[in-house]
């Protein structure tokens, strides 16, 4: 199998201080990989380092290869982010309708007629199992969705981009049990067709969903502290 993302010796620094890593891993085509580790090891930070969305003041080094090609560590690479899509922990809904939100990213990276875009939105919503719940209210405000639906909406709008890989940051931590199950189902349904990197502090969840695991340890400089991420 091809490796979609290969990371070698990735570190995140705050000035001279090493906050995260070094960490190395490979994501195989179509696999679901879990990223686990103690609180403060920087699981979410690794995801953000991959797509260059680190908080102000933090810097990264190491090597990232996407589809076998090294990725330059330049600032603000929007094209890369349209390929490797991060889905943040708490669902963020933009103003506008459900459809607007589903197409939020796609509209900006692809020029296509409205019917094509709509077809793609429908496809993405079906993949997350949200379609049957929202098909009648695609044009109503996205703010009316429940929190579990919002989380799947965020997943759907990432899928609408047909990304090379998905980075999911604790996708179920903000949800109740029932919503968690539906989101987990959606993630399972992606298995085989999408490459997923899933951050979770719930080892049972990682076991349920993932076929490989990467463990992230606290960097040596931070071992003596418990750091809040």
């Amino acid at each position: 199998m091809d490796s979609v993302i290969a990371v070698r010796e990735l570190r995140v620094r705050d000035g001279d201080k090493n906050l995260v890593g070094p960490v190395s891993f490979e994501l195989k085509q179509g696999s679901t990989t879990g990223l686990c580790g103690p609180s403060g090891a920087g699981k979410s930070t690794v995801l953000r380092a991959l797509v260059d969305l680190l908080p102000h003041g933090l810097s990264r080094d190491g090597e990232i290869r996407v589809l076998g090609r090294p990725v330059a560590f330049r600032k603000g690479d929007a094209d890369l982010r349209a390929k490797i899509v991060l889905v943040p922990q708490t669902p963020v809904v933009f103003g506008g309708s459900v459809l607007d939100n589903t197409l939020f990213g796609l509209r900006h990276v692809m020029r296509a007629p409205a019917e094509e875009l709509r077809a793609r939105a429908e496809q993405a919503l079906k993949e997350t199992g949200l379609w049957k719940e929202v098909r009648d209210r695609l044009d109503s405000p996205a703010q009316t969705l429940s929190i579990g639906q919002r989380q799947r909406l965020c997943l759907a709008r990432a899928l609408a981009l047909e990304p090379t890989a998905l980075l999911l940051d604790e996708p179920t931590s903000a949800l109740d049990e029932q919503s968690r199950d539906t989101v987990e189902e959606s993630v399972t349904a992606l298995g085989g067709s999408r490459t997923v990197l899933l951050v979770s502090h719930d080892s049972a969840q990682v076991e349920r969903l993932c076929d490989a695991t990467v463990r992230l340890e606290l960097p040596e400089t931070l071992r003596h502290l418990a750091v809040v991420p």
Partner: peptide
């Protein structure tokens, strides 16, 4: 503006100018 809005928009592949047009200006 909530930083999550910026992060979400950027992680969907928007460029800086698109972020301004589609998120910052409407907000």
């Amino acid at each position: 503006m909530p930083p999550e809005l910026t992060e979400s928009a950027l992680s969907l592949g928007l460029s800086r100018t698109q972020l301004i047009r589609s998120v910052v200006v409407p907000y």
